[in-house]
Design a protein around this nucleic acid. Structure first.
Lengths: 226, 226
DNA sequence: TAGACATTGTGACGTACTGCATCAAGGGGG
DNA sequence: CCCCCTTGATGCAGTACGTCACAATGTCTA
């Protein structure tokens, strides 16, 4: 997919008509990262917002004792890093490439005139943040109420919605996460996640592949995860 | 404190000069609730935003099986209910008065012209949402990494920052929450929270009162909670 | 192609937390 | 004013999950 198409799906640009979007794009700088490279780190100052053009990137937070928490996995047309743009404080998470990745970056100064001049841009961003807040509250409730296998199931179904591809076997989700990362994502130990996955596989609900799963029975998985 | 002073501290109004704030206020409707009364419920449609003028109100989510999750406790000059305003979907939480409470309500139509006409209002709201998102991520990390006593300590210190009053004994925090509610807030059972509180009290870090605590050793409490 | 290192798979064991059950205290409503 | 019901306090048994330990793969690189 080309850059224009991907950007067009991002909420930031969806708000604009064709010419405005093109104008906004002139302020954009493209960045490419190889798998494992860090875009920015927790604690740094920064006022750039990014939209994923191709590949996947993860946002991680490191606790003082070194343990890590995976906040989100972002794919094409998804946006991140905007918090430090609206609220000028150091970054609270690091962004690390899960695969080779191509990004569109937009600085505070590039965006500011659009925010002040075109109210619909600000409104779209408000909506995007509101949706994120809703989603985050869901995840919090899951952490409290749902057990680890349930959270693993939910995480897989969520990833499936965004990255899943229909195959004759089922829904293939190439999440590009190690089980360790999946564990950090759902807030559990690697071992427990592994056992949950093994259990699901044994029941025939899914098949485990390297950094991917093929979901064969989304129904059951969903039922188990609620 | 009078209505003007309280509203002046709210991020929504802080963005405006005196006359603009006064103009915006004309769209406001005041609501009064008695302790225990419900302002709105999960699932309802609604496009009103509220600012607490006096008293406290809680936002709760109910899981399908009936268990409840307390999202936040809001006091004077704090804002809530704005998500459904930016993102027109049913409310995802219920708002219930913890004490007798007085609120300022502002509808979608009242606010819209200000959002489109005065970019600084939208920017302030973006900043407010960004801060909330940061905060929510902190809480999520705590749910994963911190044990129940630690979360209780953090919750108390957070409430202390917002509602605490210096006394000769220490910092009195009249949180207006039952231990049951505090438990729903930190994502634990009532019993566990009670034991954590009892333990803190026994160590002399705080004293327990009805729907309040007096923090005598914030240092130690903070150290225990990290 | 071999060796090294990262990732995955699985069991044993300890423990923090939950859920239940019971009891005491206090405060608001009839 | 007294009763009842909410709130707070505490012990105990069951369990889900984390930690540890190790084996079996897979994958990158020299």
């Amino acid at each position: 997919m080309n850059t224009d198409d991907v950007l067009g799906k991002a909420p930031l640009f969806a708000a604009l008509d064709r010419e405005s979007a093109a104008a906004l794009r002139t302020g954009i700088s493209e960045v490419e990262l190889h798998k494992g490279q860090t875009l920015f780190s927790e604690g740094e100052t920064g006022d750039r917002l990014y939209v994923v053009l191709d590949g996947k990137i993860k946002l991680v937070r490191t606790a003082p004792d070194g343990r890590e928490n995976l906040l989100s996995v972002l794919g094409p047309s998804e946006m991140f890093g905007e918090l430090s743009l609206f609220d000028p404080r150091p970054r609270t998470a690091s962004a690390i490439a899960l695969t080779d990745v191509r990004l569109a970056g937009l600085g505070h100064d590039d965006l500011r005139p659009w925010l002040t001049g075109r109210p619909e841009v600000a409104l779209h961003l408000l909506r995007a943040l509101a949706q994120r807040l809703r989603r985050t509250n869901d995840v919090m409730a899951d952490l409290v109420f749902t057990d680890v296998p349930g959270r693993v199931g939910k995480a897989l179904l969520d990833l499936a919605e965004r990255f899943g591809q229909r195959t004759e076997e089922g829904l293939r989700v190439h999440h590009d996460l190690t089980q360790e990362e999946l564990a950090q994502y759902v807030g559990a130990s690697r071992e427990t996640v592994n056992k949950a996955l093994a259990d699901f596989a044994q029941r025939g609900w899914l098949r485990i592949e390297a950094k991917a799963v093929v979901i064969m029975d989304a129904e059951r998985l969903h039922a188990r995860s609620r």
